[in-house]
């Protein structure tokens, strides 16, 4: 067959670099950001930028070099976080950030692998992966940004949308209750479980820092405003008004039972560190038990084929 195709327009590296030079480096956090990627795609009043800033704040606080970390994210508004950070970043398929990160973390056990994704990505399509990674205690730092809906696709109901909340696919009110994420993560075996809102950036920085200190599966839920997808149909107002709601309605209770952490529409938000335990992570167990046994020629010794 003959092919008639359009002429390719080659990649103009120099023009791209010139465009980058325009705005990069104005902010001290810019050294953690990929050149030329700001402004980001998130709406005015969205909380995602705050979470990203807090993540950078935690890297700064822990004095991590960017080569010591990798960020994996899934699909959705939160999935785009990876693309902004100037480190090894992976923007994977919908819901599969955790299994991808599992492979990465096991291949590079000395790297801090953070998984940045939304509630829909981690708990709807990726729910199974999350509970299994928590059970295995893979060394992943999961940061779940919860905005109670699927924002990227235009505000549909998700696994965290509270009962009665309106979204574009529940115009008459949601008939399903939402997940209580910290409770689920705790029950699945996460060694560190915390929840904050974007109104608590200092606590969030500290919490992300704490999760970096632990080896194992940590889970931090960050409640973030989504004025476009969730705020508008539920009459929660602008991003700023949602932030005021977090200020007025969140209650910091460290060590609270995650079973009590359910969030109802316009209800109280329990925040704090709910769980901070220690148990050996997958890689440690695999090394000390499986690999050690195999190399000692013990039970794992293979017959010569």
């Amino acid at each position: 067959m003959k092919r008639r195709l359009r002429e390719l327009q080659p990649f103009d590296k120099e023009a791209e670099e010139r465009a980058i030079e325009l705005g990069h480096g104005l902010h001290p956090d810019d050294k953690y950001l990929k050149p030329g990627r700001i402004p980001h795609i998130w709406c005015p009043g969205c909380g995602l930028g705050v979470v990203l800033t807090c993540f950078i704040g935690a890297l700064r606080q822990k004095q991590f070099g960017v080569d010591e970390c990798a960020v994996v994210s899934g699909i959705g508004c939160t999935g785009r976080v990876a693309g902004y950070l100037d480190m090894d970043t992976y923007h994977t398929t919908h819901g599969r950030a955790i299994p991808f990160a599992t492979g990465l973390a096991l291949a590079k056990p000395d790297t801090h692998v953070a998984v940045f994704s939304g509630d829909g990505d981690l708990f709807a399509i990726g729910g199974n992966h999350l509970i299994h990674a928590a059970r295995r205690n893979v060394n992943l730092k999961v940061i779940c940004v919860n905005n109670f809906n699927f924002g990227m696709t235009g505000g549909q109901a998700g696994p965290t949308t509270p009962l009665d909340a309106k979204t574009s696919t529940t115009p008459l009110g949601n008939a399903e209750p939402g997940f209580n994420l910290p409770y689920l993560a705790h029950a699945s075996g996460a060694i560190y479980v915390a929840r904050w809102t974007t109104f608590h950036p200092r606590q969030l920085v500290h919490s992300i820092g704490e999760s970096f200190d632990r080896t194992g599966f940590t889970f931090i839920e960050v409640i973030a405003p989504c004025p476009t997808g969730y705020g508008r149909p539920n009459k929660l107002g602008s991003g700023l008004e949602e932030m005021r709601y977090y200020r007025d309605m969140s209650e910091i209770r460290y060590g609270a039972d995650p079973a009590d952490a359910e969030i109802k529409l316009r209800g109280k938000i329990l925040v704090g560190t709910f769980e901070a335990a220690d148990r050996p992570d997958f890689m440690e167990t695999y090394r000390t038990q499986v690999i050690a046994r195999a190399q000692a020629g013990g039970k794992g010794k293979g017959r010569a084929a």
Partner: peptide
């Protein structure tokens, strides 16, 4: 384990495929 590699049984094939991509990027 005899050669210092990692075997992991994932929760499904979707996860298995994603994990080997992650490990490949891990070198």
């Amino acid at each position: 384990p005899q050669v210092g590699g990692v075997y992991i049984q994932m929760e499904d094939e979707i996860a298995s495929m994603a994990a080997i991509l992650g490990a490949s990027w891990g070198g």
